[in-house]
Structures are given as C-alpha cells and as structure tokens.
C-alpha cells in the first residue's frame, strides 16, 4: 500500500538563511524495554546491527540508527518500508521478555535543516531553549520548538534533523521557515 502513503508535507521545502526540507517517509520504531538487559542488547544488535546507545546518543547500524529516548526506550530509524518487519523481528527476538515495540513512522514528521553550521545553530536557537552550541553530532536532544515537542540532532555540522508529531508538521515547517527567513541572521554561533 506504500504507493498511497504520503508523508505529512510530501517533501515541502523552504530555502532561506538555511534550507528546510520535510524529509519524506521515514521508518520509525519505538522499542520500550529494559535497555540494560542482555536480551534487549542482543535483539537490537541482531535486528538493527547497532549497539544500545548511551544516554542521549545515537548508534548507527546497517541502514538503521538507534536513538536513546529514555532509560527504557529507544527510537529506531529505518527505511519506511522496513518498519513493520523491524517490529516483527524485534517481537520475535524478544519473545518472553517484557517489552513494547510499535511502528510510529506514521505518527511523526521529520525535517532536514541544512546550512552554514553557525547559521543553522542560530536558526534553531530562535525556537528551542536547548543549548545548540553544546549539542554535538550524534547526540539527540528532546526538547521543544516554540510550543511543541521536538527531537533535534546534528548528523554533522551543518545538517540537523528534527522530529515532531505529524499533526504539527505544518506548524514546525512554518516555524523553521520563519526562523530562516532572510534578513534575520544573528551571527551568534560560530
């Protein structure tokens, strides 16, 4: 049915001081379990090819990333059409272990924001109380953008990813576009 599937904003983009792009369909799976348990680490390694991330970090596996969300929760980023099989595989691998896996790809929207590193941090700092200067690539910060929850991380300097709930995708896109509107450069972050 994936040919009928559309992401929240169908890849909308805005180019200003930085470029804001809705990233399209992104597979996302929530896994809740005791992250310290060997069985859980084994299951994540087997299904995602990645280690269990330390607090706030992201680990990378075969075409997948595993992001720490809470002491008992990770978010697995995978191709959209793989999400259901990741849920099924984790379910099998964790049979008998108390856990919850659920495909949340549909519940969220993802944005890619790119630009000159300092300008990118300045743009995000117009919206989030989290310290962008202190956010190193590979670390995910769950916080808010203006009035809604969001998770932000830098894939590398100059490329940020933002996840929010699907219903507020348009709001977040408008926020980021407004913050990136030409004429408002701050020149704070370097």
């Amino acid at each position: 049915m994936s040919e009928k599937a559309v992401s929240a904003l169908a890849g909308s983009a805005f180019e200003g001081d930085v470029k804001v792009t809705e990233a399209g369909l992104q597979g996302m799976v929530t896994l809740k379990a005791d992250l310290g348990a060997a069985a859980v680490a084994d299951a994540i390694a087997a299904v995602c090819g990645a280690g269990v991330p330390e607090a706030r970090r992201i680990t990378t596996g075969k075409a997948m990333q595993v992001a720490w969300m809470a002491p008992d929760e990770v978010l697995i980023l995978c191709p959209h059409d793989r999400a259901d099989s990741v849920v099924a595989d984790l379910g099998k691998a964790l049979e008998g272990v108390h856990h919850l896996t659920v495909n949340v790809s549909e519940a969220r929207a993802v944005f890619t924001v790119t630009g000159e590193a300092g300008v990118l941090k300045d743009t995000l700092s117009k919206l989030t109380p989290a310290d962008m200067a202190a956010l190193a690539p590979g670390e995910m910060r769950r916080t808010r953008l203006a009035q809604v929850a969001a998770a932000i991380w830098f894939e590398e300097a100059g490329t940020a990813r933002v996840i929010c709930f699907r219903s507020v995708a348009r709001y977040v896109f408008d926020l980021l576009s407004t913050a990136a509107r030409p004429g408002g450069k701050v020149g704070y972050h370097r």
Partner: peptide, 11 residues
C-alpha cells in the same frame, strides 16, 4: 536524573 539534561521550566 534520568537523562542528565538541565531542563528549564518550559520543558
């Protein structure tokens, strides 16, 4: 104490 983030009141 769970994620180590010094969060401000609005979070």
């Amino acid at each position: 104490p769970y994620c180590g983030i010094a969060a401000e009141e609005t979070e």
